[in-house]
Design a protein around this nucleic acid. Sequence first.
RNA 1: GCCCGCGUGGCGGAAUAGGUAGACGCAACGGACUUAAAAUCCGUUGGCCGCAAGGCCGUGCCGGUUCGAGUCCGGCCGUGGGCACCA
Length: 877
Amino acid sequence: MAYPFSEIELKWQEYWRSHETYRTERDSKKPKYFVMDMFPYPSGEGLHMGHPLSYTATDVVMRLKRMQGFAVMHATGWDAFGLPAEQYAVKYKLHPRITTEKNIATYRRQLDSLGYGYDWSREINTTDPNYFKWTQWIFLKFFNSYFDTESQRATPIDDLIRHIESHGSEGLPCALPRNTKHYSSKEWHAASKKEQADFLAQCRLAYVADAPVNWCPELGTVLANEEIAEQEEKGYTVVRRNMRQWVLRITAYAERLLKDLDRVNWPESTVLSQRNWIGRSEGAEIDFEVAHGALSPAERGKIRVFTTRPDTLFGATYMVLAPEHPLVERITARDERRAVERYIEEVRRKSDLERTDLAREKTGVFTGAYAINPANGKHIPIWIADYVLISYGTGAIMSVPGHDERDFEFAEAFGLPIVRVVQALGVDANEPLIKPFTEDGIAVHSAFLSGLSTAYAKAKMIEWLEANGKGSRSVKYKLRDWLFSRQRYWGEPFPIIYTDDGDGEYPKALPEERLPILLPEVKSYQPSGTGESPLATISEWVNTTDPETGHPARRETNTMPQWAGSSWYFLRYLDPKNDRELVSKEAEQYWMPVDLYIGGAEHAVTHWLYARFWHKFLYDLGVVHTPEPFQRIFHQGMLLGENGSKMSKSLGNVINPDELVSQYGADTVRSYVLFLGPLEGTKPWDSKGIMGVHRFLNRIWRLVVGEDNVTNLSDLTDAPLSPSLERLLHQTIKKVGEDIEALRFNTAISASMILLNAMEQEPGGVPRRAMEVLLKLIAPFAPHIAEELWQRLGNSTTIFDAAWPTYDEAKTIENTITLILQVNGKLRDKLEVPRGLSAAELESFARESPNVMKHIDGKQIRKVIVVQDKLVNVVAT
RNA sequence: GCCCGCGUGGCGGAAUAGGUAGACGCAACGGACUUAAAAUCCGUUGGCCGCAAGGCCGUGCCGGUUCGAGUCCGGCCGUGGGCACCA
């Protein structure tokens, strides 16, 4: 008979609810601990087994820390905006709020059934106006800020405006595009609102851009790069299309996002992913004069390139512009115009897939124009090719086919000259190049650089460029600005209107007092089909007035992406009901940063980068006091199906948490998902193995309660523990605490099993004291049974108010050791001997062992290695 | 192509400042209890040889360092994940 888990689990869940056992308050007398998992998206499917894995892990840590005397913050909520709810709404004409609420109720029931100790008084919901008011508030702050390049932080845009009003726009501490039209103070005052808005958009941290986006006709929306693969898997098509989009200037924070990775305790792989994603490159920007073309020299201007190898400038034999480069039109020779236009059109039609996967073969066309290599004055042809991206660097490159794979390939395809300007040390500088030499070496055929090693040659070239006004040192990042709008209904509306003073529309922020901006009630959630969101079809919502001027205005109809609400949610746990601030200073100061955050590695460069960006921005605003939000991140691994393949409905190998809970009880399910193996590992589910953990809990139950489940008579003894059990008890307390701290739950559970095995072997019966300790040790994993037995042992308060057991280091130490006797490194004998014997004593054991003697017989002893309290190795030949 | 990570019994996995390989659990086999089954309890369980004592082999493969390597180093093979023309 299994113990009555259903009964006791319901009993304790009800007890915890009515006693508000998990309610957390700030307590200045206690140290704090903030442990999080990822708040779920409440899908229609309900919980899958991946949830119990990470949620149990954080729940276990929460309970340990609480018993150790910490004030523990552990809350959850709902990441409830998003595509699936809206697609469901489109299909069944049900408001997404309805399905979302229904799904949340299911999730809540499931989470409760697993016995999780969240502080539900802090529950948040990204779709709740009282929550997204603050998401919108943060967006407003982005819009109303610029990134000051001198102080390297977000600063109110009003400061910038004041500066322009009195001093004009030259020399602003703000990164502006090269060809920006500047305003004198006088010109600024004369400029229209629209002109001013266009200028300021170049500085704002949130701005509108006409950007090529990933347009999905079937969904009627634009997708983020990281969403494409998922939707394409579902059979949707994705094409490129230009649309007006909100963009967040995350690139301004690239350097800080990169540098502060040094301060966090995160998985190495995730830190590396973020580093690579940010993609910092050091090099130089170099200007090439256009030598030949249809325009006069004054009009032609210069082509600026970015290179990480300025030392190879003498080897630049041609240039390539991205097809979208603004200069292409101006420099293209009349004879080549047709071919160039045709190529540009061809490239535009290519999808991302064709441009990357299939475009192994290099393509491009000659523009008919030439540039002058600033190092040697040689005229080199200017081409356009789609292997050069408009969005990176300057959208143009100098091609050094001798020392770059891509340039080499292109040069070979089009018969362009390849010269060597770097050679490995000690190799003939004239040796022909059959493949590009991309390593560092010694500069050759490079005038004043010749003979210098790559590092020096780079520095020298930059020095030369700067001295001659032909270029300068430069740092570029792969990171792009963050496309921040979606053409959907079910998301946060932007607190933005468009007004027109007769000179064209421009976006304008609504005042903070107007927040939250609510979604209108609608009848149809069908995408408009034009690329605009369903909101665009509701004219009574779209058409509004500018609260400042009373003039007619139009609302922004895009909504924010799902990342918006999840980029700051953890802050709201700390002060969920505050209607004056996003979070109070006191709460933020006390609880932040997050001490432990467990979540899947798939968010390495999305959620965890976005959240860091928002946090740094809030740091600049003074809302938070730490530059990084998450001290420690840990990734749970994937749980596979029985057969070792991914759990999926189509494969029919999905494990349902509800069924498991009703069959074995929550305590067994919780313990078993963690017992399966290391948290971070990918491991297959084994439905038979769960019995092992279930038996373990049953055995504990029977030792306290007895066979009939009713009597409280127990066979526990108050006799003292045998010395070996006493020692094991201390060892186990130590190990379980350390293992939970290190998130090694599987070995923590097995240590408890070992303790139980030993307790059952006690000659005088199972000691009550040992049982009390064991109950505390398993309480984080199996809270219900621990509570029940704790109560039956005569305690009247929750076990989670009891202190975590302590151990005595001295009592964990064995007083005898197993001495290993080896001959030539092979095990020949084992002896139980007292701890702390001298080397000579240990060696004498070896010399007296018959089996050791047998193996050294007839040989000469060369050496005897003695390791204190461990082994003796006799080396004989 | 580049960058990470991982290869240990029939299975999930223990063990790394280099020092008893296989903890704990599953499965399997044998036994006890039972009219029987379930549940429970006891025992065996890396392979080979041996009546036993014991011996040989064994942590993907090859080599190296070391008295001693699952653990460190080099080279392969396999496998999982991330990035993908970033100049």
